[in-house]
């Protein structure tokens, strides 16, 4: 199936709380996505390199340590620099409304906080990737 959604999941920063991202990985896999999970403590450089090599539609990152205001912008910047600006960046963490506004402005496609369900995340990614692809066709 050529249209299978390809998604890279990663955990940047130092925290090791990977329960959430593994649940998401399992839910994506059950939804028929191709999931690449890079594991823990990836630097923004490692994440972006993997995303471009694997030619993914989206990158999802989970940050529970509070370092999101540093790590999301770093990944975005590298994606732009390395020619991956069409890759959707989304993520989860304990992120305040103010930070969320700033991060969305900077170009993060979607952010989830505790309590989000796998169903809503799966549905969002499906439609976001579809929108992105139809945009590309128009262009």
């Amino acid at each position: 199936m050529a249209d299978k959604i390809r998604v890279l999941l990663a955990k940047p920063g130092l925290d090791g709380h990977d329960r959430g991202i593994k649940v998401i990985a399992a839910a994506f896999r059950d939804a028929g996505f191709e999931v690449i999970y890079t594991g823990l403590r990836q630097t923004p450089e490692q994440i972006v390199t993997a995303a471009i090599q694997e030619d993914v539609d989206a990158v999802g990152v989970s940050i529970l340590s509070g370092a999101h205001m540093i790590l999301f912008p770093a990944i975005l910047e590298l994606l732009k620099k390395e020619g991956g600006e069409d890759i959707l960046l989304f993520g989860g963490g304990i992120i305040s409304k103010e930070d969320m506004v700033d991060l969305k402005k900077a170009g993060v496609a979607k952010l989830y906080t505790p309590g989000a369900t796998t169903t809503e995340i799966v549905d969002w990614l499906k439609s976001a990737v579809k929108d992105k692809k139809s945009d590309e066709k128009i262009l």
């Binding site: 920063g13 130092l14 340590s65 509070g66 540093i70």
Partner: peptide
């Protein structure tokens, strides 16, 4: 370098 943004946080 690995401590960037994490010092004194948790």
């Amino acid at each position: 370098d690995r401590s960037l943004g994490e010092v004194g946080k948790c």
